[in-house]
Amino acid sequence: MKSSLSKLLLASMVLATSPVLAQQYPNKPVTLIIPFSAGASNDIFGRFVADGLSKLWKQSVLVENRAGAGGAIGAAAVAKARPDGYTMLFSSSSYTINAAVQKSMPFDPLKDLKPVAMAMRGQMIGVTGSRIPLPDLKEVVRLAKTQKIFYGALGASSTTFAAELFASVAGVKLEAVNYKGGNEAMIDLLGGRLDIYFGTVTTVLPAVLNKSVTAVGVMSPTRTTALPNVPTVAEAGFPGAETDIWWGVFVTSGAPADVLAKINEGVNTVVNTPEAVAFIEKQAALPAKMSIDEFSKTVLTELGRWKELAEKNNITGD
């Protein structure tokens, strides 16, 4: 009696979940891997895109944080996933930096992952703490010639790279102090232990608005709307130290073309609604709208540029 009941149960379950064959993408939950810890700008934007996509597709988009090694760990996980577009990576410009500085990567950044859609672009900003008074970038450079100036580094990331780029343009050496995330570095900056931190506007904005730290330079050709009084690095006397960051979606190489097109279209739709634009601008970033080819080309060009810079300035991921 009992065993026939269990057979019946089993049979009805088999029927209820009978495999759905080749329906339109996405016909099951999609995973979006964020290769940085929760709360980072990558995380905030990634979750925003995941939420938008899941509403658009009427299919859940599960967010997974896989932090570490400047984003390489999360990227490697996606590189190894099934090439069906159901595992996406929400990475940022750190992707190309990482590829430029690390000798042995757990995946091939050129071959294993396919850039599909750029979601947002953003600006980097340098902020100084109160250990020693550093009102502007000129003063940072002047003091760095005679004493140690500590900057907050996050492994091989855009933050570290921005600081090293600035240092090489200014012709000085800054001392790297590594942190797990930007929030930990901000605590040391606010606590008067760290001297300078180059971070995304999102990470530094609360402290700048609170006047606990001084914003000394925007690393873009133009100033940022969030902090219009802060000069660009060129205005501050260091042209050539510009670097913008971006956030975008990658998938495992080998995913079908129609899936790529669907993701590209989806991301572009999600980030360009009026509410999305307002939200993104509030985070001091701008929505992007690029085709798959444009984004792939951007990634490729950047990769070459970073590699050259990394070799010239001897920047390594240790």
């Binding site: 810890s37 929760a38 709360g39 980072a40 995380d43 905030i44 979750r47 925003f48 939420d51 944080n65 929030n183 901000m186 605590i187 609360p206 402290a207 939200f279 985070q283």
Partner: peptide
């Protein structure tokens, strides 16, 4: 605005959202 744990970071992200 500085989260002390991953869970807090998630709450923070929700607030920003």
């Amino acid at each position: 605005g500085i989260p002390g744990s991953p869970t807090m970071a998630l709450m923070l992200a929700a607030m920003i959202m």
